[in-house]
Amino acid sequence: MPVMFGKFDRKKRFDTLARLYSDDLFRFGVWLCGDRTLADDLVQETFIRAWKALDSLKDVNAAKSWLITILRREYARTFERKVPPLVNIDDVIGLEQPDESPEQRLEKAHFRERIMRLEPKYREPLMLQTLMGMAISEIAESLELTESAVMTRVFRARAQLKERQQKEDRLESRATHE
């Protein structure tokens, strides 16, 4: 019986996508919803939907954006069903690097808190650019924004992170001197 309709290739394509992008999508999902369990479910559901719609993915180079779009839609559906609780991102990060010093862990925890305090409209394009390695044009397409809007948002995201970092540093320095 000959293999019909490229079924074998379809499975191979799917497995490649899962291997290449599941970890990054999971990280993106955690930053999107602040919940490891929900992020895990989101990524698995994303891939189930991706499998069903795999034939609509014509350009393999667009796979990452395509998967992100599916994940964001799935998250929107989840959000319609129940509002995820507000969480401290550091509570959901999970295992840390064992070779980090307590100071490094604390510094990283503070940085993560600052990221999580960003408004989602700033945090999301920053995640896509930094974590997912997407170009401004790709982010604009994924988020249905203009490129200049994306540039403004990633700029403001960084500006707010730096500003908060400087403010916390000043407070810490003042507390040390007192």
Binding site: D15, S22, D23, F26, R27, W31, I93, L131, R158, L161
Partner: peptide, 25 residues
């Protein structure tokens, strides 16, 4: 700054996630 940002963002993924996805499919 970018190194610090990336370090903070790159949270550990769940071990075996890709394998679970393939099995679930």
């Amino acid at each position: 700054f970018e190194a610090q940002l990336m370090d903070a963002l790159k949270i550990p993924s769940r071990a075996g996630l890709a394998q679970d996805i393939m099995a679930k499919q």
